[in-house]
Design a protein around this nucleic acid. Structure first.
Length: 99
DNA sequence: TGCGTGACTTGAC
DNA sequence: CGTCAAGCCACGC
C-alpha cells in the first residue's frame, strides 16, 4: 500500500469516531497541498470498513448528493457529530487534530 | 504518452 | 452571501 491511493485510505481509516477531516486536510497530511480532488477521487472507491462518512469538504458539509448525503449525516450523528442550524459541521470543534 | 474526469479549494465579482 | 473560474493530482483509456 505505498500508492497514493492506499495512503489516502490508510489515513481515512485512522480518523477516530466522533471526529471529521476535510479532503484538504488529508491531502495536506500526505504532502499534497492541492491534492484534495485526488482524495475525493480515491474516496469514490469507498472500500468497505472505511469510515468514509468522516470525510467532509472545507465548508463543513457533505459533498455527496441524494441519499448518500443523508446517510453520511446519519452516521455522523450516531457518533455525536451534529450540524449547526446552518446545516454545517463545526470544523473547529470536530476536526481531527491528531492528523 | 496524452487527455478527460472527479465525494475539492480558494480567490474574484 | 451566492456564483464563476482556474489550479491541481492521480487514475483509466
Amino acid at each position: 500500500m505505498s500508492s497514493t491511493f492506499g495512503r489516502i485510505h490508510a489515513t481515512v481509516a485512522r480518523i477516530p469516531p466522533g471526529c471529521v477531516a476535510t479532503y484538504g486536510d488529508i491531502a495536506l497530511h500526505l504532502g499534497m497541498p492541492h491534492g484534495a480532488r485526488t482524495v475525493g477521487w480515491a474516496m469514490r472507491q469507498c472500500p468497505q470498513g472505511l469510515p468514509w462518512h468522516r470525510v467532509i469538504n472545507a465548508e463543513g458539509k457533505s459533498s455527496l448528493r441524494g441519499k448518500s448525503r443523508e446517510r453520511q449525516y446519519t452516521l455522523l450523528a450516531q457518533e455525536g457529530v451534529v450540524t449547526d442550524r446552518r446545516g454545517r459541521i463545526d470544523l473547529e470543534q470536530y476536526r481531527w487534530q491528531e492528523i
